[in-house]
Simulated assay, not measured.
Amino acid sequence: MTSTQSNGAVAEAYAALVARGVLTVDPAQREAVELLDDVLAGLAADKPKGLLGKLFDSKTEPVRGLYLHGEVGRGKTMLMDLFFAAAAIEGKRRVHFHEFMDEIHAGMAAFRKSEKGKDADPVEAVVKPILKSGLRLLCLDEMHVHDITNAMLLSRLFEKLFAGGVTVVTTSNVLPDQLYKDGLNRQLFLPFIALLKQHMTVAALPAAQDYRRLKFAGQHVYAFGTDASVRAEMDRLWLRITGGEPGVPGTVKSTGRSIAVPLTALGSARFGFADLCEKPLGSRDFVRIAHQFDSLIIDDVPQMDRSMSNAAKRFILLIDNLYDRGVKLGASFAVPLEELGKDDKTAFEFGRTVSRLIEMQSEDYLGQGLRDTATPVA
């Protein structure tokens, strides 16, 4: 390992978590931290060009990014959290890979319907405002290519982003060479893999343990009742999955608005039932939440009778999306699971929800990684 940064901002943030007992030092994570600090050092040294510079130099070589790959639960998302927070630059964005691609497709579709879209290049049209916004750093969570529409677009899209000087840092469960493996017309996808290797350092994260599995090992993730001991049990579970971090308020961006998150820490979020199911949220919002966090705690889930039909429908949608994604759930319920749904209008759907809730507390479910699901177009 050769690195110019031994005490960079990411290393300091990582060391602070270790000092507080939130993390145990992992050599593979430490190496990844150094590589992330190298990217930060490059960005700090690379001064953005002014207007005249951009006019006379249409192509800008970006600072070399990082492609960090490894199995689930190894800490990739946590390291991305530290990196993104430490990147003290304007023009940075972090987004789930599938969400980003959905935005690109939506922008291209809108452009094709416009008057200008008859003859012009739709990829150029969607990239131009991205570059004009001043984007310098694009952080993409969970790059995974299984859709032929994305596969055929990526090379042209990223060629323009890199040419515009955008540095890309991404996490993935697979090596670049395994992206779109056995996909239709994969030979047309190979230039994208070459492009990634040209502009990004490829690094593995072979961490010693599945940290996500350790968070929930041997834990009772549900509590029942309404007294103070139930809240205390959820407090203990929250501190268990966050490594003792109390958490801070956060937000989830969805369909042009922000969803308030009462507490977030280390890829986990804590909500009250009312925060999610008694507000005008829908399936798209719940998908966004499921992609942003790997673990959720929901406090104070009530028994839902006919007077709570709308809240019950949202709860059903929420659990469906968390289950499909493989998000780990801790929750406190006022009554046993079999007694949650007391509305005959939602009885059938609620039966499936209860079945999923039962499965979601099992060791088998808690030991699985997140599933790759696409996000809806905003």
Rank of each mutant, 00 (worst) to 15 (best):
M1K: 12
A9H: 12
A13I: 13
L17Y: 05
L17E: 12
V18A: 04
V22N: 03
P27R: 08
V39I: 05
L40E: 01
G42V: 05
L43K: 01
G50V: 07
L52I: 14
K54T: 11
T60N: 04
V63L: 03
V72S: 10
T77N: 02
L79W: 07
M80S: 10
F83P: 05
A85K: 06
A85W: 04
A86W: 04
A88D: 12
K92G: 06
K92C: 04
R93A: 01
R94D: 01
V95I: 11
F97E: 07
H98I: 08
E99N: 05
A106R: 12
F111N: 04
E115L: 15
K118M: 05
K118N: 11
K118D: 12
A120S: 11
P122N: 06
P122Q: 03
V123E: 09
V123H: 06
V126M: 06
K128N: 04
K132T: 13
S133I: 04
L137E: 07
L140I: 09
L140Y: 02
I148L: 02
I148G: 06
N150F: 01
A151T: 02
A151Y: 14
G164H: 07
G164N: 07
V174K: 13
L175W: 02
D177K: 11
Q187E: 15
K197Q: 09
Q198M: 14
T201K: 11
A203C: 10
A203S: 10
A203T: 07
A203K: 04
P206Y: 10
Y211F: 15
L214G: 08
A217Q: 14
G218H: 01
H220W: 03
R231L: 10
E233Y: 04
D235S: 10
D235Y: 03
R236M: 10
R240E: 11
T242R: 02
E245D: 15
P246N: 12
S258A: 09
A260K: 06
V261Q: 00
L266P: 00
G272L: 01
S283H: 13
S283G: 09
F286Y: 15
V287C: 08
R288A: 12
I289C: 00
D294E: 07
S295H: 05
L296E: 00
I297S: 02
I297W: 01
D299C: 02
V301N: 06
M304D: 09
R306I: 13
S307F: 10
S309L: 14
K313E: 10
K313L: 12
I316L: 03
I319P: 00
D320H: 02
Y323R: 01
D324S: 01
K328I: 02
S332Q: 06
F333D: 05
V335H: 06
L337S: 04
E338N: 14
G341E: 12
A347D: 10
L357W: 08
E359C: 06
E359N: 02
Q361S: 13
Q361V: 07
E363I: 05
D364M: 12
L366D: 05
G369T: 04
D372S: 15
T375S: 15
P376C: 11
P376Y: 08
A378F: 05
